[in-house]
Design a protein around this nucleic acid. Structure first.
Length: 707
DNA sequence: GAGCACTGC
């Protein structure tokens, strides 16, 4: 609450209007800005451009398939289908660039299937997100007038809606990766379409390589040919072409409404402040039915700006305002507010994180206010510490954000940074694979029979990062050595679990500690997202209700208590609301538990409970997380200061239950090392130092030697 | 005594 804005609010009589006036001058915008439409048109060639109209509408009436057929015919893709077919026939690999609304994702699989280009095989279309895979499949099933799960189906985690005669299958890229672990040649597919390639998720990047190798090998061994189509919005086409041996690139026109871009003339020191000023400047001059979308970096920032807007709105001219926060950690019920229509004469202002950039679409947005920043997670190879850093977003992200103003009508985007600033930014987001931990990915590659040192990646991660992942896998016993890694028996079992390898190690060790029952619950919760929801202004209350779950043993047992209580609660949604817990994430954890239990049963593991002997569970946790130990620093007065086995000085995070405990435990295990203002251990439990010798003797000896 | 962006199996 200590923001600069609060002080503006407190002295509102004489300051708000003054500041806004000043800002109004400063913020006057350039009108010679680019128009997204123009940019799109410049991208078209090859005679494939047609002007047309289309939108995948989620609320489509599903009773009239004739209408759907008519709608299909108006799509840009439809107009050029024969030309496209010819290209697909001629080439086994191609890149297809198409903007939003070109219809590429729904139509191209259908066109291929209508002409039976897939032969006896199946057409796979990958998506980075579950919802997209599901809704696209449903749309295409409706268009082909077929039952979902027959000709057209989808596969996502927890859900497989396909059958033996499915020919067009939408699936998440993670799902196709898992299939590749049992069949690296992906023989059941004759066409694989990798969609949203520009997002460059780890999974898509790995798939690029898997598919490339599968194609080559199938060619050499005369197995049925594999056609690969990489689809994307604008992206680094040259790099992609090179990667795919100079394959052809085809451009399709999309259909969005024109969006006018405005840049600030001067640099703003404080983008939150500039955002609030811009909001009220637009608010005073535009009709109430035109909604705003503001891009911010996170929960706290959104909450601060929200309360500032509410304060200023009491004084400001213009229509009534409804402010809607939107971030992933927000309970689903509150997220829904964003899609609720406001009464006439009331304006909706959505304050969102990156979630609104691609994951969700809000209709009726007329103005986008882009602060130009994003919060990004980075990771340090040598210490294993993670950082959340606010940094300038890429040009591609800037265009993506601006495009959100042109979904329903022509709109405008206000960039709170200068045109020169924009031009100086990096063109594309840094691919995730070069900035995240790779142990899961490496384990998966090895399980698929790939050699991590020669596997073709479009962008290679730092050598350290690969090395660190292999060392960890060796450490937890998943592979036999780091240089020419082969899976061990344990490692093979680990790959059966769709979770972090450290967590699968915990589960695999649980039977010998007699605590698989508890380990399953805990690993499921740890694999889900944060279950605690702490709104800024209700923090005290949220902390108070948390008390009843707290275990003196630490955060892990506390999480277990939360999960157990959740399972027992009869009215779960209401119970979660009362206890400041996130229902969505707890339900997700319970689905994960179900899935993990299935894997354990297939592996014939004994599911038993340690009852009140929670030491057993902590030892078991340690057997997977033994590289995450920290020891209290000798002589550090007051306690709470630790040093990790990698030698990083860190403190217990104040949100943890051990934070207030005195004397501080001499040794702890932590789930996460997070660097913000200082280094903190997050999600921590106390351990007996001798446990480390029991569960990981070799590692313990080396630690001792180093300390 | 401080704050976690977003996906996925």
């Amino acid at each position: 609450m200590d923001s600069k804005y609060t002080s503006v609010g407190r002295e509102k009589e004489h300051r708000i209007t003054y500041d806004l006036k000043v800002k109004r001058k400063k913020l006057s915008v350039e009108s010679n800005s680019k128009n997204i439409k123009e940019v799109e048109q410049n991208l078209c060639f090859n005679g494939l451009c047609q002007d047309s109209n289309n939108k995948i509408n989620n609320s489509l009436p599903n009773d009239v398939s004739e209408d759907l057929q008519e709608a299909r015919k108006t799509l840009p893709v439809y107009q050029v289908r024969f030309r496209l077919l010819e290209e697909i026939r001629k080439h086994n690999t191609m890149i297809l660039i198409g903007e939003t609304g070109s219809g590429k994702t729904t139509q191209i699989p259908q066109i291929i299937h209508e002409h039976r280009l897939e032969g006896k095989g199946c057409i796979a279309v990958t998506q980075p997100r579950r919802v997209a895979a599901i809704t696209l499949a449903m749309r295409v099933a409706a268009e082909t007038n077929s039952e979902i799960g027959s000709i057209v189906g989808y596969t996502v985690r927890f859900e497989d809606v396909t059958s033996s005669h499915t020919k067009v299958k939408y699936l998440t890229d993670g799902m196709l990766l898992r299939e590749a672990m049992t069949d690296p040649l992906l023989k059941k597919y004759s066409v694989i379409i990798l969609d949203e390639a520009h997002e460059r998720t780890v999974n898509t990047d790995v798939l690029f390589g898997i598919v490339k190798l599968a194609q080559k090998e199938r060619d050499e061994h005369k197995v049925n040919t594999l056609k690969v189509i990489v689809m994307s919005a604008t992206m680094d086409v040259d790099a992609f072409r090179k990667y795919y041996n100079n394959c052809p690139v085809i451009y399709l026109e999309g259909r969005t409404h024109p969006v006018t871009i405005y840049h600030s003339k001067t640099k703003h020191e404080d983008y939150q402040y500039a955002a609030v000023c811009t909001i009220f400047q637009l608010h005073a001059t535009t009709p109430a039915d035109q909604d705003f979308l503001v891009f911010l970096t996170g929960q706290e920032e959104i909450e601060t700006v929200m309360s500032n807007i509410k304060q200023i709105a009491k004084e400001a001219k213009g229509p009534q305002i409804r402010v809607c926060p939107l971030y992933a950690g927000l309970p689903a019920v509150k997220q829904l507010q964003v899609w609720k229509k406001t009464p006439p004469g009331m304006r909706k202002i959505v304050l969102a994180t990156n979630i609104a950039e691609a994951s969700v679409t809000i209709p009726q947005i007329k103005y986008v206010i882009d602060t130009g920043v994003v919060k990004e997670r980075t990771w340090c190879t040598s210490t294993g510490a993670e950082r959340l850093v606010v940094r300038a977003c890429s040009q591609a992200a800037g265009w993506q954000r601006a495009g959100r103003a042109g979904r329903t009508t022509a709109g405008a985007a206000y960039r709170l940074y200068t045109a020169a600033d924009f031009a100086a930014r990096q063109q594309h987001n840094t691919p995730e694979i070069v900035r995240c931990p790779l142990s899961s990915t490496m384990l998966m590659l090895i399980a698929t029979g790939m050699d991590p040192s020669t596997f073709p990646l479009l962008d290679s991660p730092p050598r350290d990062s690969i090395q660190a992942a292999l060392i960890l896998l060796k450490e937890i016993g998943a592979i036999d050595n780091e240089n020419n890694p082969k899976l061990t028996v344990l490692g093979k079992k680990m790959t059966a679990f769709p979770i972090d390898p450290k967590y699968s190690k915990i589960l695999l060790c649980a039977p010998e500690h007699n605590c698989l029952e508890e380990a399953l619950s805990l690993v499921a919760v740890m694999s889900s997202e944060n279950v605690f929801h702490t709104p800024l202004h209700k923090r005290e209350e949220a902390l108070k209700v948390k008390q009843k779950f707290i275990s003196p043993l630490g955060d892990h047992i506390t999480l277990l208590n939360v999960y157990k209580a959740f399972c027992k609660a009869p009215l779960k949604k209401q119970w979660c609301r009362e206890n400041y817990l996130n229902h969505k994430n707890l339900s997700y954890a319970s689905e994960i538990r179900q899935q993990l239990l299935g894997v354990c049963q297939r592996l014939n593991m004994t599911v038993s409970s340690c009852g009140t002997a929670l030491d057993q569970l902590l030892k078991c946790l340690l057997s997977g997380l033994f590289t995450n130990c920290a020891w209290a620093r000798a002589g550090a007065g007051g306690g709470g200061r630790y040093v990790t086995s990698a030698g990083v000085a860190a403190m217990l995070h104040p949100s943890g239950v051990l934070h207030a405990v005195r004397p501080a435990p001499p040794a702890v295990l932590y789930t996460e090392l997070l660097h913000t203002k200082r280094s903190y251990l997050v999600t921590v439990s106390a351990i007996q130092p001798q446990w480390l010798h029991q569960v990981a003797p070799e590692y313990a000896r080396r630690c001792r030697a180093n300390r």
